[in-house]
Amino acid sequence: MKKFIIKLIKISFALYGVLWILQFIIDTGLRKSTDDVFVSWNKIYKGEINAEILFLGTSRTLKHYDPRVFEKELKMVSYNLGTYGTHFDTQFLIQNPYFKYNNKPKIIIQNVDITALFKTEELTNKQQYFPYYKLENYKLLSSFDKNITIEYLLPMYKYRGYSDVILNSLHSYFGISKDLQNIKGYIPKDEMWNDTFKQRLKYLKGEKFKYSHINFDSRFKVFNNLLNDLEVNSDKIFLIWAPEYIGRQKLEEEKIMYVKERYNQLAKNDKTLFFLDFTNDPMCLDTTYFYDSYHLNKIGSEKFSRQVSDSIVKHLKLD
């Protein structure tokens, strides 16, 4: 009996060691990866970004702001840190390490809208966090996912179901990388208008978007916390509501007005904060600039980026 238990304990310890080593190898590989999912994270933790203009927000940020346009127009180093499927509450996961390991930006462009206010129910693209499971972000990560604790304790457990990520890590040891779409964090989509909006309308059957389940007061509290953090780390913050296709806006016009007004109020009370609204821009009427009702395509994002940079120039001169 004793022998059996001692053997089990010995095997468990040895196994635990092997798993830690394996995890270390895979984490290290991912930290070298130039894959779109990991490249920005790796630059953040190496302190290589140090942007003067930093774009933050959801996939709408990722798809809408071309840093090259801003660098050309404003002569300032720019970087896009927009991430797929995030909301304001999960944005802390990327902005905290950014501010810790990089110089403070002069300007932050925070994309705002309604969906960014939503509560995160589960982490999207969870693999992006894997190489940097550190004590400093444990509390925040575990507040979004109940499995995080066991993933921190049991090595390799976080990689379950992610064989492609493991392969990606191994590839990076041999210098194999996929064709990068990422341009200073910005990932343009060179596609024309698709039929997802049509399908959405069909699904809605004449109904409008219902946001009755969202407690906007509590969601704005989260946003205020985020804003406080941004204000500590930058001199000027632009809240920008990027274009949305007009058809979509009609499905949520009442809520858009309400939320827009709240962003507006925040900007009125703060001299370092500007709110720019592009939901009335003529682009919103033309599907040429969109690939779906919520995201601009490459043509749209390039045009929009020029518009935003022009607006910033004006505001900075006025300031």
Partner: peptide, 18 residues
């Protein structure tokens, strides 16, 4: 024997669903 145990356990861990 131990190699087999470890490989098996690693494969199990990598396939556990939530």
């Amino acid at each position: 024997r131990y190699g087999l145990y470890f490989v098996t356990i690693i494969m199990i861990i990598l396939n556990i669903s939530n």
